[in-house]
Every structure is written in structure tokens, then in C-alpha cells.
Design a protein around this nucleic acid. Structure first.
Lengths: 250, 250
DNA sequence: AAAACTGTATGACCCAGATCAATTAACTGC
DNA sequence: GCAGTTAATTGATCTGGGTCATACAGTTTT
């Protein structure tokens, strides 16, 4: 049996997406801002600057001065921390509408993680100073931001739990499900995840290695739960993966 | 050689500490509120209710409706997540002035972690609804809360990195240093950590087991870096522990 | 279409750390 | 001070998953 050809069709990142016209639409749709009147959104829009970033390029590096808040307008961005040992830890994968970077000049001077474009991306950024101004002008925006950060904290704590108490197999199943619900696309036969992301990325998400991830994915494929290829995965049987996680492992 | 007797002297939790008089002082010293005028603090004070919690008692449980924001007035509180396997994961240990619980009626209905008193404690709590009111009245408080949550997110991501990329030995050394800087007391010979916390707790913080923690601690003690006993540790040589962490492990 | 990459798969081996079991030390209450 | 309880230690053994090495398949380039 021959391996399935790649079903990956990446979204075409039109440079025009970052034009002033489109930006207004994107910013106006963000959870932080969408409740604001058009006049306010337009004013906020003027504070943002756009940057086109090709795939695999660093947007900022751990330790860099944290001068901007960033928004993903188009494309995918991964947040990474590098351990002294050289091992790379993947903290999160972001897509359209997600924020990253620092919120304020107060909360810290340096970025604590590295941001890398996973695909060609269009990033909007605003200086921390200007964003502070928005927060001061719009208390309700501050509330929404607080909610967003709280949610991300909860997610991070869930990862801590998984790294502490799950087997690699369970962590991989869990990571697949998270990615599917966040970035997956429903296809006839299942949910396609086409970030694109490699075994390497999945290993960095689960505190494991490429080889082990590859082995586990082969097992999943043999069971008929997933179909995999180069930098993509289709989940065929979500329920089985879920069972794997909830199963008390002794 | 006989083992050193416990140097642990727990702070005496006077029930009076939670009296209205003392509460005003405690709340007025909190980073969230200390910049506010006395009148505002007094008003906020009236929204808080105090609860005395004996050691080892649950304050709330994972899954419970998240109706309150809590503050530690006196004592120590640990935040825990339980994995399906039964393993307990220790997310954080809090002390005087720290917040826990949920910030708002918006950000989620249920607690995602369990809070347990580590010592006899006095907890102040405010309903999420009332706290929402404070946030609405005082935008600057919202900003400070946002900063606090952001900081905690950064800490959580650091833990994720450590669980992904460090050896158990490194994670234990790192946990000891974190505890020392947060909750340690300088003594002549070193920094005493007397939460009290057991090998069990340290294992739950580092994603390990009591036995392994015990072995590692024995090694540290043999090297003369720490002195340990039942539920306490004195760190004698911080530098050596630090070296252990920064050492790229291959 | 052949060559050159680069990501994936798999086999063989090994070790950090989990698990199981038993002993000892420290604290608690009488 | 003694008995009872709970935490800590230490030993023996086992294994999940890391490491190293090699082969293979899919894209991309020429």
C-alpha cells in the first residue's frame, strides 16, 4: 500500500492582507476590541504596524527587550523556550487573532520566550507604551485581556499536569486533540491538522523526542486512529485518543 | 551521627489576625490595593469575608463552582491538580498576600485546581461579582492584577520548560531555589525552608516520586549542599545547586 | 527524471528513574 | 518516657522512553 499523498494546502498569504484596509477588519474582529465603537477601533488601528514574516523566521528572541505586543493577523506562530541543554520546548502555537509578546512596560523588560513564524505570516504589532494607553482609555479592554491571560495560565497549568503525570503516549494524544480543536480542519474522513508541523514540533510540545513520537504515531496509525504524512496528521478516531488519556495508566 | 532536630517553628496563627482591624492592614498592604486612598481600601475591606482553615483542609476543589477570589492573609496554601491516574501535581505554594481562585464571573465557571491549606491559615475571600465591581471602579487595580497573572503565566511556562528538558535532579534543585527565594528564612548557616513540606510535596512539584526525591536529597546532603529533616530543608550552598541547573546535561 | 535534501520510520541498546519492599528515624499523644 | 504513627531512607529490580545508527520516502532542485 502506498502512502497517501499530502493533503496539505497552505493558505495563500496575500501581502495585501496587511494593508491598512484589511487591518481594520482584522483588528475590529479581535475579542479584545470588537465591542468598541468604530471610531475607537479606527484610532487603535493607527497605532498598529504590520510586519510580514517568512516561514521559520524569528519574530523576537528570548531575552530581547519586550517592547511590543504582537497579534497574528495571518499565518501561524510558535512560541518556544530554549533550555540550556539545547533542547527546544514548544509552549504554544498561535494563529489568526491570537496575541503574543508582552502587555506592558511594567510587567517585565525582557521576553521570556522566542516567537518563530511557522508559516509565512503577517504580524501586527503595537508598542507596549501605546497599548498601555489603550488599556488606560478602555478599562473593559483590560478586563478582556485579563480574561485571555487567565485562560492561557489555566492551559499552561494543564500542560504542567500532563508533563508530570501522563505517559508520552497520553501526552501525544492530548497534544493532537488540542491542536485539532484549535487549528484542525474538518474533512470528510476526519480532522486534518496541517500547520504544518513535524514530529520534531510534536516532540517539543510533549517533552519527548522525534523518534519516540514517530513510534507512537505509527502505533496510532496501525490502530487506524490517525493517518499521517510529512508535516500533517489527520485524526480519524478522536474517541480512541480520548480514552487513552482518561485511562488511569495503572 | 544523630540527625539534627527540627528547626521548624511555625508561625503562630492568632485567630485575631482575621479580625476586622487586622484585615484592613493586610488588605491595605496588598500590591493590588496599596496605592488606593484609605477610604477606598476601607470600602473594599468590607467586601471581604474571612475564613479560618486548619492545616490539610481543602479550601475548594477542582471542578467546584468558582465563585470567590481568595487571598492568603496568614499561613500557606498549596494549589494542586489531580491527574486521572491518581497522581497529585503541585502547581504552586502561596503565602501571605498571594491571591488564588478566579477573578471574575466571566473567565470560567469552575475552578481548575484544588486549594489546600498547608498550615493553619486565615483566608480572605470576596465574591467574583464584588471583585468585578472593584475592577470596574478601579482600572489601575485591573492593570496590577493583569501584571500579577502575566507573571504567574511566565512562571508556569518556566515549569513547563523544566519538566520537558531537565533531569529530576535539576528540577529538584530548581524547586528548592524557588521555594527558598519565595518562602525561605535566612538563618546563620543557610536558608531554611519550613513550609512545612514533605518529600511527597517536593515530588508532586517536580513530577517525580518520594523515593527518588529522597535519594536526590541524600546526595545533596552528602555533598554538604543542604541539611534536611522531616518536612524541612536548609540550603547551605545555593551556588552549587545553581551550577547543577545551568550545566548542560550532555 | 535524476539527484539532493529533509523529514519519517525502525531496530538495537541502555539508563534514569519508577516501582516494590522492608527498615529506620522523627514526631505525637498519652 | 513509652507506644503508636507517619515520614524518610535505602536496597533490589524492572521498564518507558531516550540515544545512536541506519534505511527509507516525500518533496524540491537541477
Amino acid at each position: 500500500m502506498t502512502r497517501p499523498k499530502s493533503p496539505v494546502r497552505l493558505e495563500w498569504v496575500d501581502p495585501a492582507v496587511c494593508s491598512t484596509d484589511y487591518r481594520l477588519k482584522i483588528i475590529g474582529r479581535l475579542p479584545f476590541f470588537k465591542h468598541l465603537p468604530p471610531a475607537a477601533i479606527s484610532k487603535i488601528n493607527n497605532l498598529f504596524h504590520d510586519v510580514d514574516v517568512p516561514a521559520d523566521e524569528r519574530i523576537y528572541h528570548e531575552g530581547d527587550e519586550a517592547a511590543y505586543l504582537h497579534l497574528v493577523a495571518m499565518g501561524k506562530v510558535k512560541l518556544v523556550r530554549n533550555a540550556e541543554s539545547g533542547r527546544e520546548v514548544l509552549l504554544d502555537i498561535l494563529h489568526g487573532g491570537d496575541y503574543f509578546g508582552s502587555f506592558s512596560t511594567l510587567s517585565g523588560r525582557a521576553h521570556t520566550e522566542t516567537a518563530i513564524a511557522q508559516t509565512d505570516s503577517c504580524i501586527l504589532r503595537i508598542s507596549s507604551r501605546d497599548f498601555d494607553g489603550i488599556l488606560a482609555d478602555h478599562p473593559d479592554v483590560t478586563r478582556k485581556v485579563l480574561d485571555a491571560v487567565s485562560r492561557r495560565l489555566t492551559e499552561s497549568q494543564e500542560i504542567v499536569k500532563q508533563l508530570s503525570a501522563y505517559t508520552v503516549e497520553q501526552r501525544i494524544a492530548s497534544a493532537l486533540m488540542r491542536l485539532a480543536s484549535k487549528l484542525g480542519e474538518s474533512r470528510g474522513e476526519g480532522v486534518l491538522i496541517q500547520l504544518p508541523f513535524s514530529r520534531q514540533d510534536l516532540a517539543a510540545m510533549t517533552g519527548s523526542t522525534t523518534e519516540t513520537v514517530s513510534r507512537v504515531m505509527s502505533r496510532f496509525a496501525d490502530e487506524g486512529w490517525v493517518k499521517t504524512g510529512r508535516k500533517w496528521v489527520t485524526i480519524l478516531d478522536m474517541k480512541k485518543l480520548e480514552e487513552l488519556i482518561s485511562k488511569p495508566y495503572r
